[in-house]
Amino acid sequence: MKNKAADHRRKFLKSSIYAGVSAIAGTSLIQGCNTGASNAGEKVKLLTTDGTLVEVNQSNLTKMSHQPVSPDEARKGIPGRHFVMVVDLSRCRNARKCIKACDHHHQLTPDRPFIKVLRMQDNKASSPYWMPKKCFHCDNPPCVKVCPVGATYKRSDALVLIDNKRCIGCRFCMAACPYSARVFNWGKPKPQKTDHSYSPETSVPSQIGTVEKCDFCPDMLRQDKVPHCITACPNGALYFGDQIADSVTNGSETVRLSTLLRDKAAYRYHEELGTEPNVYYLPPSDRLFPFKEAPEGQPS
C-alpha cells in the first residue's frame, strides 16, 4: 500500500504540478478536487511546502498545470504585498551570476539583458564599485506616467510590468526612464521555448517592436519564491522581500527590512528625481571583496 501511494506521488511529481506544491497551488488543488468529487478515483496524499498534508483525487492532478496568469489578471497585484529589493554594494564583485540566471529564466540574448552590473565611481577619491541594476519598480514611475496605452502599469504590490501584447512600440517609456532600465526588441527576438501562453508575469515570449525590462519574476512571487537573481548571487548581495511584512531575504538569511535600511544607511539612486524606487542600495563600505576591474572581453 505504501508503495502504491508513493507511486501516485511519483506520477504527481512528474506532472508539472510539483512546482505547484506551494501554498497557493496546493489550495487550488484541493478546491479543484472538491468540485470534481464525482470524478471517482484513487486518493493521493500530497505534501505542500508549508507542511500541510492534503489528500486529493488523483484524476484531478494532471488537470492543473502551472499556467502563468492572464494579461488581465496580471494587472492586479498580489494582495497585501509591497515588494522591495535591497542590494548590498559591499558584497558585489561583478560575478554576473544574477545576469546569467535572469537571461536564462527570461530566455534573453546577451544584447538585451534586464540586469546590468555597472562600474560606478562616485568621485575620483573614492574607490570604484560594482552596481547591479535592475528595474527600480518606482512608486512614482515615469514610464507608467508617459505610456500612451497603459501597456506598462503599476500594480498594488509595487511591481511595474509590461503587457507586450498592448505595447505600440513608441519608446516614450525608454526616454522617460531615468535609470535606463528598459530594453527594446529592435529586431525579431530569438525563438523562445515555452509551453505557456504569454503573460506579463513571465515576459515570455518576447515580441518584436515592443519594450521589455526586469519584472521581479512575478511568476516566482506567486509561488512565494524569490526572483531568480536573488538565489543566483553567490555572495548574498541581493535581498528581496516584502516591505509590508518588513522582511527581506537573500536566500540564506532573513532580516528585518527597516533594521537593515536604518543600520546600513541605505539609499536609493537619484532620490531627487522623486521616482520613489523600490530598490535600495547599501553603501559599498566594509567590502567583502576589494574592487577588481572587469576582465578583458567582458562588455563594459
Binding site: 504585498r81 516584502d242 511584512a245
Partner: peptide, 10 residues
C-alpha cells in the same frame, strides 16, 4: 520566527 512572505524572520 515570524512567517514572512518568502522565508522565516528570526
Amino acid at each position: 520566527y515570524v512567517q514572512g512572505t518568502f522565508s522565516l524572520l528570526n
